[in-house]
């Protein structure tokens, strides 16, 4: 048997964390260590990050006594009388309880987020970054300060239009990104570059041929961001342009330009959208690509819906969307509310909490209750 | 804010495949769970059961007997209570984290794959 002892005042600095198969894999990999990270000390939630993945930490309280004990050698050995052994074998070792816990940490896979506090927007300014508070800090510093794995940071950075200009991490403004994309496509088309194998340096060289002599805002890093945001990496440092993503970008910009203040007939919008591409670019377009960015106030017309105007409160958002359009196809409606589905319900289950569903022929439409 | 978790100790354990097969881990730790509150004095008393270890007051509170063949366990608490329980393999192993507030560091010191758990009402010691 074993003698059990306990400290009279337990050490509160021990905690337990569930080691899922993913965490065990991260522990045994050659990649850098696990880290606890957080946006800020006061309000936000702690995440656990490996090199490639991020998990939200969740505290699971329980009502039992859990004592953590370790083998030790008591300083004053006492012999035990047989009568105090209650009929079980003599103790051969001793354990000392040093901590008690009333909870375990669970982990739930989540998306890493980049901390963009203090990251300036770059719109092609000549003296960038000027007196930016981020001066002197590197991209690695931005990633280190983000509740995210490094791998997710790298992918997400470019998705956001992240760039490093004059040594300063920044986000390209939508205008800057649009212009850079347009110039890059035009130059690549002019030089017949292969859109499936665009190399940043080669692409940068052809862009420089086409811009005016003097200071061009389309530095190598900007071109690199364009390729990374609108492409997928090949094995050999080249990028394959994602045509659908490029078409979508042009489409959203076209909605903002031509269909913001009032609705526009769909056919007219499609023509205008097509006209915004570089000549002979050959990108296919389909209004379904822009779901989540427009509504159809009347049949056959489209109007831009800015994500900035969408209420944060779920009921208010549903109300606003049904005011814009009384009846929606389920697929067109879902992109407008999926960010509110924080519990991860099936999307139509989530929608049905706040709206009504009707079948019209083969289609499912959503309308207000 | 961020803090790296030092994992060299458990990494070596996992890579050596030296896993816990007994109630105590290869590092000598054990997890004891009781469905109830374990009441232990907060201050020392003039009694044999109280002593000290490395300058810290401790008290002997029980006697544990484990049968690894049947995975059954008996825990005697004080002089009056007897609990019957079992050795259970954890569905998900638990990492033991030590937070050092002075240095601001965190270390994963061990991994528990088993615990000894007592869920039944205590019986009197006859």
């Amino acid at each position: 048997s074993t003698n059990l002892y306990s400290r009279l005042s337990c050490d509160p600095s021990y905690k337990l964390v569930q080691l899922t198969p993913e965490l065990l894999e991260a522990l045994t990999s050659d990649e850098p260590q696990l880290q606890f990270k957080c946006f800020d000390e006061k309000r936000s939630d702690v995440v656990l990050c490996s090199a490639r993945r991020t998990w939200l930490l969740r505290q699971k309280n329980h009502s039992n006594t859990v004592m953590l004990m370790r083998e030790f050698l008591p300083e004053d050995e006492q012999t035990q009388e047989d009568s105090s052994l209650f009929g079980i074998p003599r103790p051969i070792n001793d354990l000392l309880g040093y901590s008690r816990t009333t909870y375990e940490y669970e982990t739930r896979a989540t998306e890493g987020r980049i901390n963009l506090d203090l990251v300036p927007i770059y719109n092609g300014e000549v003296n960038f970054p000027g007196e930016s508070k981020l001066k002197g800090r590197t991209l690695k510093d931005v990633f280190d300060n983000s509740p995210s794995s490094e791998t997710e940071c790298k992918v997400r950075w470019y998705q956001l239009g992240g760039c490093v200009v004059n040594g300063c991490p920044c986000i390209l403004s939508p205008d800057m990104l649009s212009n850079a994309l347009h110039v890059t496509l035009m130059s690549a088309l002019a030089e017949s570059l292969d859109f499936d194998r665009l190399h940043p340096c080669e692409t940068y060289e052809v862009v420089q041929k086409d811009v005016e002599k003097g200071r061009s805002p389309y530095v190598l890093e900007v071109v690199r961001t364009v390729l990374a945001k609108f492409g997928t990496p090949n094995d050999d440092e080249t990028w394959k342009l994602n045509r659908r993503q490029v078409a979508q970008w042009y489409g959203v910009r076209a909605l903002q330009k031509f269909a913001s203040r009032h609705s526009v007939p769909l056919e007219e919008f499609l023509i205008k959208w097509k006209s915004t591409f570089p000549p002979f670019a050959g990108f296919d377009i389909d209004i379904k690509m822009l779901r989540g960015w427009f509504c159809e106030p009347t049949r056959g017309t489209v109007q831009y819906v800015s994500k900035d105007t969408l209420p944060v409160d779920v009921k208010d958002r549903f109300k606003m969307l049904f005011k814009l359009q009384s009846q929606w196809d389920l697929e067109a409606f879902a992109p407008f509310i999926e960010d509110l589905n924080t519990k991860g319900l099936k999307i139509d289950t989530f929608i049905m909490k706040y709206a009504r569903k009707r079948r019209i022929g083969k289609k499912i439409v959503v309308c207000s209750r | 804010p961020s803090v790296a978790i030092s994992t060299s100790q458990v990494r070596a354990l996992l890579l050596s495949e030296n896993r816990q097969t007994n109630v105590t881990t290869p590092m000598g730790n054990m997890m004891l769970e009781i469905q109830g509150d374990l009441e232990i004095p907060e201050t020392s008393h003039a009694d044999d059961r109280f002593s000290s270890h490395e300058g810290v007051d401790i008290v002997k509170f029980g006697l544990l007997h484990v049968n690894m063949e049947t995975k059954s366990a008996t825990l005697f608490i004080g002089k009056k209570q007897r609990l019957l329980g079992s050795v259970v393999k954890l569905d998900t192993p638990l990492g033991l984290l030590k937070f050092n507030h002075k240095s601001g560091t965190v270390e994963m010191q061990d991994i528990f794959s088993y615990k000894v758990i007592f869920k039944n009402r205590p019986l009197p010691i006859m």
């Binding site: 939200l56 969740r58 | 008393h45």
Partner: peptide, 28 residues
């Protein structure tokens, strides 16, 4: 002897409550 070493039994077990963890919680 004015002390007790005792298990106060609880009839049930509950572990349904879960919450996110703040930096302060982590170090508390």
């Amino acid at each position: 002897k004015n002390f007790r070493i005792w298990v106060r039994y609880k009839e049930g077990f509950s572990d349904a409550v879960r919450k996110n963890v703040s930096w302060h919680d982590l170090w508390s």
